[in-house]
């Protein structure tokens, strides 16, 4: 399987069921959270995953590095079956995870020690650890905080340290499960900028779960989940133009997209696939006979 693997993640008919057992080990309740997911994520892509709580998006994300293994179907990471126990460490080195709460992810008392934690466990030589930790901290723009204690940092800074800890392992892909949900607007912007930089400059594949539509609009591809299934999978412009379908599954669209949708309902000639302020402004100015230079 070495060589030209173009898909970093591939799922085939993936199903997952939570089961509640009684004292004798008999199943008394089962809840199917994933109902047949078929996805391929090519190397280097920036994918956003949307869906309201309980739609199965976090459960799906946990399959991408073998934290969970499907009840049915398969997940391949770089061609490796995540159900293969002998290769689980290869899977986990290839796909790093970042979670919602920054305070639950940092383990050490000094920033640089936290970033080095996984590398020490992997038995990376000390010189190489130093190099990778410095590089990771520079990438997330936190090098000057390397000797700080995590509790002195803001939420956005802590999240960037969590990301540094993951990129020090040099993974091909990072899965981020609502990394901005607990941050203020400034922290959210910092984390977003870091994620985009990793994707653009390092070519790291990004799977980004979020509730913020303006963040999802910055991805290359958006996957929408509802009730354990993928219901939409397309580029952001096409996804967000489906305003009514998104609202029906409890999701929003960016405000400028909704404005265009409302204007179209009034018979005003403006495209439906507008998702950025810049684009929206240019089209409105056109209505007034003005061009943007």
């Amino acid at each position: 399987m070495i060589g030209d693997i173009v898909n970093i993640i591939e799922t085939k008919d993936l199903e997952f069921e939570y089961q509640t057992l009684d004292d004798d080990g008999k199943v008394i309740e089962s809840n199917k959270v994933l109902k047949g997911i078929n996805l391929t994520i090519p190397k280097g892509q920036f994918v956003a995953v949307l869906g309201h709580n309980g739609c199965g998006k976090s459960t799906l994300a946990k399959h991408f590095n073998g934290i969970l293994v499907g009840s049915k179907g398969k997940v391949f990471v770089n061609g490796i079956d995540t159900a293969d126990d002998d290769k689980i460490y290869d899977v986990r080195q290839n796909v790093g995870m970042v979670f919602q709460n920054p305070d639950n992810q940092l383990v050490a008392t000094i920033v640089e020690e936290d970033v080095a934690f996984a590398l020490e466990n992997l038995g990376v030589p000390p010189k190489e650890i130093r190099r990778r930790v410095d590089e990771a901290l520079n990438t997330v723009d936190m090098y000057k905080y390397r000797e700080h204690s995590p509790h002195q940092l803001s939420g956005g800074q802590k999240q960037r340290i969590a990301i540094a800890g993951v990129i020090a392992m040099e993974p091909d892909c990072i899965v981020l499960d609502e990394p901005t949900a607990m941050l203020d607007p400034k922290g959210r912007k910092e984390v977003m900028a870091t994620i985009k930089k990793l994707n653009r400059e390092k070519g790291i594949t990004i799977v980004f779960i979020t509730h913020y539509m303006e963040e999802a609009a910055q991805a290359e591809r958006v996957i929408v989940m509802d009730k354990g299934r993928v219901i939409m999978d397309d580029e952001p412009k096409k996804i967000f133009s489906r305003v009514e379908e998104l609202k029906a599954v409890g999701l929003d669209v960016p405000q400028v997209t909704e404005l265009c949708y409302e204007l179209r309902k009034e018979g005003i000639d403006i495209p439906q696939d507008i998702i950025t302020e810049q684009d929206c402004m240019e089209h409105i100015l056109k209505l007034f006979g003005k061009d943007v230079l």
């Binding site: 400034k186 400028v256 100015l285 007034f288 003005k290």
Partner: peptide, 19 residues
């Protein structure tokens, strides 16, 4: 360092261009 709604940002951009 605070955000204003996206629709407010749009109105500011439009104002700069004369709308």
């Amino acid at each position: 360092g605070l955000d204003v709604p996206q629709i407010t940002r749009l109105s500011l951009m439009l104002k700069e261009h004369g709308v």
